[in-house]
Simulated assay, not measured.
Amino acid sequence: MMATTHVFVGLVLVAPVAVAAPDLATPLAVGAIVGGLLPDVDLVLTHRKTFHFPVLGAAGAVSAATLAAVAPSPFTAGIAACAASAWIHAASDALGGGPEMDPWTNPSDRAVYDHARGRWIRPRRWIRYDGAPEDALLASALAVPAFVVFSGPIRTVVAVALAVSLGYTLVRRRLVEWTPEWLE
């Protein structure tokens, strides 16, 4: 899935809490956005292994959510949103294709690494590859509740991220041709 789709998933995840506690909406949204993007920092390392924790991340997300429930504050809410979004990002990468640049020509059997078992989880390919038309459709659907619940700069971030998602989808398959070999 696209990084923006992961961000929208995180925003939808925290939206009910933001509605119930509007004073926490901004830290929840910022945490969800950061958490939705954070695992992909490993693009320059071993992608979907170094900072993706699809199984072990659950413990961090539950711990952070428990802390936020026991001691609610903007800081704990933001950390909980970040941890939950990062975990959901890592876990949901198994629903897509592999991390390769051209999964439509040479699909791998590696979606995301499970550090608990020391092996790769196979891709389910419900979303064939990041930027696939079904990924754009999912991102668009997930952006709607995020756009409705959040306001101000967060709503602007959602609108820009959706535009980036749709633009990326239009050029995704051409990116392989445009990418220098050393970057692949």
Rank of each mutant, 00 (worst) to 15 (best):
Met1Thr: 10
Met1Tyr: 09
Thr4Ser: 09
Thr5His: 05
Gly10Asn: 05
Leu11Arg: 03
Leu13Thr: 12
Leu13Trp: 06
Val17Arg: 02
Ala18Phe: 00
Ala18Met: 01
Val19Trp: 01
Ala20Glu: 04
Ala20Gly: 07
Leu24Ser: 08
Ala25Ile: 00
Thr26Gly: 12
Thr26Trp: 15
Pro27Phe: 02
Ile33Leu: 13
Ile33Ser: 12
Ile33Phe: 13
Val34Ala: 15
Leu37Phe: 13
Pro39Asn: 06
Leu43Gly: 11
Leu45Pro: 01
His47Met: 07
Lys49Glu: 01
Lys49Asp: 00
Thr50Ala: 05
Thr50Glu: 00
Phe51Met: 10
Phe51Val: 02
His52Gln: 00
His52Tyr: 03
Phe53Val: 11
Val55Asn: 03
Leu56Ala: 15
Leu56Lys: 11
Leu56Thr: 12
Ala58Pro: 02
Gly60Glu: 02
Val62Lys: 01
Ser63Gly: 12
Ser63Thr: 15
Ala64Pro: 02
Ala64Phe: 04
Ala64His: 07
Thr66His: 09
Leu67Val: 15
Ala68Ile: 08
Ala69Tyr: 11
Pro74Ser: 04
Phe75Tyr: 07
Thr76Ile: 05
Ala77Leu: 04
Ala80Val: 12
Ala81His: 05
Ser85Val: 03
Trp87Thr: 01
Ala90Asn: 01
Ala91Lys: 14
Ser92Glu: 13
Asp93Pro: 00
Asp93Gln: 06
Asp93Phe: 04
Gly96Ser: 09
Gly97Lys: 04
Gly97Arg: 07
Gly97His: 07
Gly98Gln: 09
Glu100Leu: 14
Pro107Arg: 04
Pro107Cys: 03
Pro107Asn: 07
Ser108Arg: 15
Arg110Ala: 11
Arg110Pro: 01
Ala111Ser: 12
Ala111Pro: 00
Val112Gln: 05
His115Val: 08
Ala116Thr: 00
Ala116Leu: 13
Arg117His: 11
Arg119Glu: 11
Arg119Asp: 10
Trp120Tyr: 05
Arg124Gly: 15
Trp126Tyr: 08
Arg128Phe: 08
Arg128Lys: 13
Arg128His: 14
Arg128Asn: 11
Tyr129Ala: 06
Asp130Tyr: 09
Gly131Cys: 10
Ala132Met: 09
Pro133His: 13
Pro133Cys: 11
Leu138Thr: 12
Ala139Gln: 08
Ala139His: 10
Val144Tyr: 00
Val144Pro: 00
Ala146Asp: 00
Ala146Met: 01
Val149Trp: 01
Ser151Met: 04
Gly152Ile: 07
Ile154Asn: 01
Ile154Glu: 00
Arg155Gly: 08
Arg155Lys: 08
Ala159Gln: 05
Val160Phe: 12
Val160Met: 07
Ala161Met: 14
Ala163Met: 11
Ala163Val: 14
Ala163Lys: 06
Val164Arg: 08
Ser165Thr: 13
Leu166Trp: 12
Leu166Ser: 08
Tyr168Cys: 06
Tyr168Lys: 03
Tyr168Trp: 11
Thr169Val: 07
Val171Tyr: 03
Arg172Glu: 08
Arg174His: 13
Val176Leu: 12
Trp178Asn: 10
Thr179His: 13
Thr179Ser: 15
Glu181Asp: 15
Trp182Met: 09
Trp182His: 14
Leu183Arg: 14
Leu183Glu: 13
Leu183Phe: 14
Glu184Trp: 14
Glu184Ser: 15
